[in-house]
Nucleic acid binder design. Structure first.
Length: 535
RNA sequence: GGGCGCGUAGCUCAAUUGGCAGAGCAACUGACUCUUAAUCAGUAGGUUGUAGGUUCGAUUCCUACCGCGCUCACCA
């Protein structure tokens, strides 16, 4: 028990911040000592079980009391005590495992003196193993009649209140383990997220894509428009950036001969945190050689349609007050210019024509008309017209894109890595997918002309000098790679967190990330800069 | 970063115009061999986020700070 003492000392140092309840903690430690005195190890190594809780519920849930009697079914099972009712020389408890619960019945006559002593020392939250036979109580609930109890692990800190559970949003995120124990719907969300990733892997593997892992630490943060996190490598004495996208490395791999390649992993962007943004988020990026943006679009749409079915078993998902229909026939496709015209606010006059997007002056005119209709659009006269058009799209159209929608043909000014349209150099072969008013994917015909790429980087450098911190830097090695010849390819990035939100009707990204980024917990450390609450 | 809101027992929440800080659950003691929000009797648990200010008196009013939520900006 010496270990336990020092463990407790160490953690009680941080006192209030870890929400240690001294009384309950001490009382339960004493109980643990008593349990050891009964001959049960405080932290045993293993427990052999014959069934899990869900297995018993599904195999025997339909059997009557009589069927369970002849012949008797003896099981060994483990779980966490989530409810406990003691009544003198007998009692009931509910054990939880895999998010499901099964009742056990413990009677002094059946478990013996020592077994019943153990039973009386158990608390809510403890893990135990049980051997016993199945039966139905007078009220008909399938239960295990205990013949032997095995202590498995003690819960020294009290679980939240049993009716309301854990509701404090901050505590739910900070102590996700408690959230998962108390709230089965939270568990369900993360099981769905797991299925989503599994489904996407299966789809891309099945379509001949090779999964790879490329660097997360980049000397130059490229492949997206975003501000990076900076870190430093001591031995190399060099600054590195956490990647904002794997794009440029995956494209190097297409140069190297991986014609179909994908990666599912984290990107890091040093920007605001919101309902839809976490500093680290998970992205699937895929590159497919010998096709263009429309080819990779079909691949991506197929993956998402497959994933909806794998995750939800159907093609429709609830999204707040709306229902999103992911079936193939319900996807819309329109160009960015068509979308702006289609959702053009009435008060802004006649919808723009194609030629209205052609010149700086006519685009400026569109902004003024939209602003007159009380729609806020960011506008900087010095920025390229393409940037303004993209801002117009976001202001006018994005909020209407609840059903799955593909927007294609993006301005070249906001698409430094994609191929231009052959007949319209101001526009690129690029698409984005939207659902639930959120961008969920972004793909294009990959620019593979090294000289064009160099000119685009130089254009970005000018944007940088103009004060755009997010504009691309020059990446000489990437241009060198392209100079060895990259096959024509379509590429795409899919926001996994956003898809998980859409598939689970979660309206904040924090509900689909197990440990979302929060400010550090206020805590007095062992160095003791602050309050140790009189200890 | 700006605006709005919230912070009271381990958890979920009360507290009248500024006037003794409370309840349920959890915990502890006792009773109870088919309960399930078990029940019954009793006990304990708080520097009301932190630091100041106004006041005879502050959970309540004011200021700053910390944390969280919503929202706007930026972004995917």
């Amino acid at each position: 028990m010496g270990d336990l003492d020092s463990w407790h000392q160490r953690y009680s140092f941080q006192g209030h911040a870890l929400a240690l309840d001294e009384n309950i903690y001490e009382i339960r430690r004493e109980k643990l000592k008593k349990i050891e005195a009964l001959g049960q190890p405080a932290y045993p190594r293993k427990f052999n079980f014959s069934h899990t809780v869900p297995q018993i519920l599904s195999e025997y849930g339909g059997q009557t009391a009589e069927e369970l009697e002849s012949p008797r079914v003896t099981v060994r099972m483990a779980g966490r005590i989530m409810a406990i009712r003691l009544m003198g020389k007998a009692g009931f408890a509910h054990l939880q495992q895999d998010g499901q619960r099964l009742q056990i019945y413990v009677k002094k006559d059946a478990v013996g003196e020592a077994g019943f002593e153990l039973w009386k020392l158990l608390d809510l939250g403890d893990h135990i193993g049980i051997r016993g036979y199945l039966f139905r109580t007078r009220t008909g609930e399938l239960s295990i009649h205990a013949e032997e109890l095995t202590f498995l692990s003690k819960d020294l800190l009290p679980l939240p209140e049993k009716w309301h559970g854990l509701q404090d949003v901050e505590l739910r995120y900070r102590q996700r383990y408690v959230d998962l124990v108390m709230n089965p719907e939270v568990r369900a969300v993360f099981l769905k997220r797991s299925k989503l990733v599994q489904s996407l892997r299966r789809y891309f593997d099945g379509h001949g894509f090779v999964e790879v892992e490329t660097p997360m630490m980049h000397p130059i943060a490229g492949g997206a428009v975003a501000r990076p996190f900076k870190t430093h490598h001591n031995t190399l004495d060099m600054d590195l950036f956490l990647r904002i996208a794997p794009e440029l490395y995956l494209k190097r791999l297409t140069v190297g001969g991986f014609d179909r390649v994908y990666e599912i992993n984290r990107n890091f962007r040093n920007e605001g945190i919101s309902m839809r943004h976490n500093p680290e988020f998970t992205m699937l990026e895929a590159y497919q050689a010998y096709t263009d943006y429309l080819g990779i679009l079909d691949t991506t749409q197929g993956a998402i349609e497959r994933a909806v079915e794998d995750v939800t078993g159907g093609t429709r998902t609830k999204w707040g007050e709306d229902e999103i229909d992911w079936s193939h026939g319900n996807w819309r496709r329109m160009t960015m210019r068509e979308a702006i015209a289609k959702f053009w606010p009435e008060k802004a006059g006649a919808a723009p024509m194609r030629e209205d997007f052609a010149s700086h002056e006519s685009v400026r005119e569109l902004v003024m008309r939209v602003r007159a209709a009380a729609v806020d659009v960011g506008y900087d006269p010095a920025e390229p017209a393409g940037k303004t058009i993209a801002a117009l799209f976001e202001a006018v159209a994005e909020e209407h894109l609840v059903q799955p929608t593909v927007i294609y043909e993006f301005p070249t000014a906001v698409s430094p890595l994609s191929k231009q349209k052959p007949d319209e150099p101001d526009w690129t072969e690029r698409f984005e997918m939207f659902a639930g008013k959120m961008e969920i994917a972004n793909g294009f015909s990959e620019l593979n002309d090294p000289e064009d790429q160099r000119r685009r980087f130089e254009g970005q450098l000018r944007e940088r000098e103009r004060g755009d911190e997010e504009a691309h830097q020059m990446d000489e090695d990437y241009i060198r790679a392209l100079s060895y010849g990259m096959p024509p390819a379509g590429g795409v990035g899919v926001g996994i967190d956003r898809l998980a939100m859409l598939f689970t009707d979660s309206h904040t990204i924090r509900d689909v990330i197990l440990f979302p980024q929060l400010r550090p917990e206020k805590t007095s450390t062992a160095e003791g800069t602050g309050d140790t609450k009189g200890k």
